[in-house]
Design a protein around this nucleic acid. Structure first.
Lengths: 199, 199
DNA sequence: CTCTGTATTGAATGAGTGTTCAATTTGTTG
DNA sequence: CAACAAATTGAACACTCATTCAATACAGAG
């Protein structure tokens, strides 16, 4: 038998190569050949570890989702339990990935597009969307009535997606710090506009 | 010679077929063969009128952009010149296309993704983005200082994109009316938070 | 009806891609 | 070192798709 753990190493190699190739060549240009070349492995290895190209793409999206979730958990843990601060942490978490991986925004957009015609990717996307939304509602609920909380949560979620989209389109011209700041400004405005009406 | 105007008829036939095929099969599945079948024409006609697949795709995106601009012009013309009402009209215009063409949202997303790796599509996208942004700033500028106006405009633009994205992802589950209402609520909050500081 | 040039067709072509699997390499065990 | 199995390779294969272009259909002019 060969070294144990070699499987997870190869899997990660291929996922990293996939992200890199999508970043430079786009989703359409992400062929098995290019991914294999970028990972310095052979084309056959993809079928061996992921069963095929589709399996590799799904694994790559799962990886991106898990990174996002990890960012969120880390930032939530290091903050006070103040509801407003928690909301700010959620915003930060949703933009922190952009800085470290400039390629992420483009790749996300590519996956979203692909996800619309792939049930499995669609399911993953929906789960993640639900989590963000219910997280936002939970904290907003402590600052305003249910109605405005629901509306504000949906608005914040749309803003986050919108800024990601713009970041992807403008080749990193839009600063993630700026996007996060605008989201936070909105949250404060929404709190001010609805506070005291609850409790 | 055959009938004059036959060219514009065929072009529109092919553009309509392209939109229809992208809606059902996705951008990746939009092949010349399917488009030709949907338009009840032959595959060769595409090269004849558009020089190739890429030309047809660019023409289709131009068509979508012109539809959006037409919606905007129409709604702006039938409203009072009140700055706030103008902003509301802009929001309505950006969501009016979703209702009539449920396929639009998916197709927009597909084009956005494609645009990132096609200079010509990217250029079209940028022009449209600039127009929306400067339109928003122009009207906001009459209701608040330059700084907040700039920030609010970018936030509104991101919200619009974000809601479109969500509409595309959720197969029309999100009502465009609701999205427009949330955008308007935000605009009013932003005006209230910054009014009186200008002029 | 015949002629003429435009409009249209669709089979043939060739480039590109994902998958397969027999052969090879690599690391471990006896 | 020899024997073995897991890991890896990459050429061959089958398939899809965009493009091309010689052949055909067609509308109006004479």
């Amino acid at each position: 038998m060969a070294r144990p753990g070699i499987e997870s190493i190869r899997r990660q190699q291929l996922i990293d190569a996939t992200l890199s190739v999508i970043e430079t060549h786009g989703f359409q240009g992400a062929t098995i050949g290019k991914i294999a070349a970028a990972s310095e492995l052979s084309v056959g290895i993809v079928s061996h570890y992921f069963g095929g190209k589709q399996g590799l793409l799904e694994a790559t999206m799962r990886y991106l989702l898990s990174c996002l979730q990890q960012d969120a958990s880390r930032l939530m843990a290091s903050r006070p339990s103040n509801p407003r601060e928690s909301l700010m942490a959620i915003v930060d978490a949703n933009f922190s990935g952009v800085q470290t991986h400039a390629q992420s925004a483009k790749t996300w957009l590519a996956f979203w597009t692909q996800a619309m015609h792939s049930p499995e990717l669609m399911r993953l996307q929906r789960v993640n969307e639900r989590r963000l939304l219910s997280n936002l509602i939970f904290h907003l609920r402590q600052l305003m009535p249910p109605g405005p909380a629901q509306a504000t949560a949906q608005t914040v979620a749309a803003m986050i997606d919108g800024f990601w989209l713009r970041a992807a389109m403008s080749e990193g011209r839009i600063e993630p710090d700026q996007a996060a700041a605008l989201c936070k400004t909105y949250i404060d405005q929404a709190i001010k506009a609805n506070n005291g009406a609850s409790k």
